[in-house]
Write a protein that binds this DNA or RNA. Structure first.
Length: 344
DNA sequence: GAGCCGTGGCT
DNA sequence: TAGCCAAGGCT
């Protein structure tokens, strides 16, 4: 069975030539492709985990302006790093990035060059280590991400296990230009061999592709969306609003600042009553509502506002809109704040 | 190994 | 419009 993935040399090199040729003609200009600074490539790879290039770009620029090098991240507080990440999602990435920066700085401050040492960094798995090693240091390591897995599956007309994908990627790896080749494979996957309606006529690999646009059963992952209700309470005191730090026992948005919040599979009225009880309030005004999805849950969120005097129970701070960026928060908070500010 | 963690552009 | 799904890693 193993032999099924040992390619004749000529077809492997043809595959590589086509991939690299396409890349040469079509590669996008991206800020992390300006040079081979491992720090810049590392940041890009962490941000790009489960996140599209288009979304990452503004965050990447902002992050590099605020934290231009490894040392600036290591010397910053975790909160500053996570604040800069607010809105990007998967906030653990930011915390682990900060931990990794400190880890590197205690080990001399030089970004590790060895694959195995890169792999030891928090938040860096096999994919990310391979990406950094190959792109920044031209080390001969493959990458397998969602794009590569989909491209391989279609190209060979078969759904491969994770393990086989890595073997495949390894056996197809060129001797040189490994970083370009890895990026090329992913970019072809993202832009040509995309999940739906692949652009086969534009694909450099279509000639030997086993499916050529024909659907491959089982390629899509099953999802079971679920709807829930959410209510956010905006306590108001002198142009400021009360934000709580969600503790680490929370399921979602842990260690982030948020309006007092209740959610579940119950009605808005019940959630609102719970919130009012918590703060000893008799009533609150409806400020508006919005939709927000976290993972496979669609939240129908409404915001209620009430003025408050004195100190609310629990741990929190009064925050003015213009200081929100000092507190790591989800985009839920942004959406809620937008409802509280009269538009002009 | 499966479940879990955010978000919003795209179709 | 609304669902789909992304340059994964950790537990």
């Amino acid at each position: 069975m193993k032999d099924a993935f040992a390619f004749p040399m000529h077809s492997a090199s043809r595959f590589q030539r086509r991939v690299l040729g396409w890349y040469q003609r079509n590669k996008r200009e991206l800020p992390w492709r300006d040079n081979r600074d491992p720090y810049r490539i590392w940041i890009s790879e962490i941000m790009l985990q489960q996140t599209r290039v288009k979304i990452v770009l503004p965050y990447y620029r902002k992050f590099l302006t605020r934290f231009p090098d490894l040392r600036s991240v290591a010397s910053a507080e975790e909160n500053e790093v996570v604040s800069c990440w607010s809105g990007l999602g998967y906030y653990r990435r930011a915390r682990e990035l900060h931990r990794a920066a400190r880890q590197i700085s205690t080990q001399g401050g030089e970004f590790p060059r060895e694959f195995s040492r890169i792999l030891e960094l928090p938040g860096v798995g096999r994919y990310t280590a391979g990406a950094i090693a190959s792109i920044a240091f031209d080390a001969r390591h493959p990458v397998v991400d969602g794009n590569v897995r989909r491209l391989f599956s279609r190209y060979f007309g078969k759904l491969f296990s994770e393990t086989v994908c890595w073997q495949l990627a390894d056996s197809l790896l060129p001797k040189r230009q490994v970083g370009d080749y890895n990026q090329a494979l992913m970019e072809i996957g993202a832009r040509i061999c995309r999940p739906k309606k692949p652009l086969c006529p534009a694909c450099p690999l279509v000639q030997d592709c086993q499916t050529r646009g024909r659907p491959l059963p089982g390629l899509q992952r099953p999802v079971t969306p679920q709807a829930q209700t959410m209510v956010l309470l905006a306590l108001n005191r002198e142009e400021k609003f009360w934000l709580e730090l969600r503790d680490s026992s929370q399921r979602i948005l842990k260690n982030l600042w948020c309006f007092p919040m209740e959610y579940g599979q119950v009605g808005t009225g019940e959630l609102r009553r719970r919130l009012l009880r918590r703060f000893g309030l008799r009533s609150a005004a409806q400020a508006g509502s919005f939709k927000h999805s976290i993972m496979q849950t669609r939240f129908h969120s409404s915001v209620v506002v009430a003025s408050f005097r004195g100190k609310p129970p629990g741990k929190g701070v009064w925050v003015a809109m213009e200081n929100l960026n000092q507190f790591p928060h989800s985009s839920i908070v942004e959406k809620a704040f937008a409802l509280l500010t009269p538009c002009e």
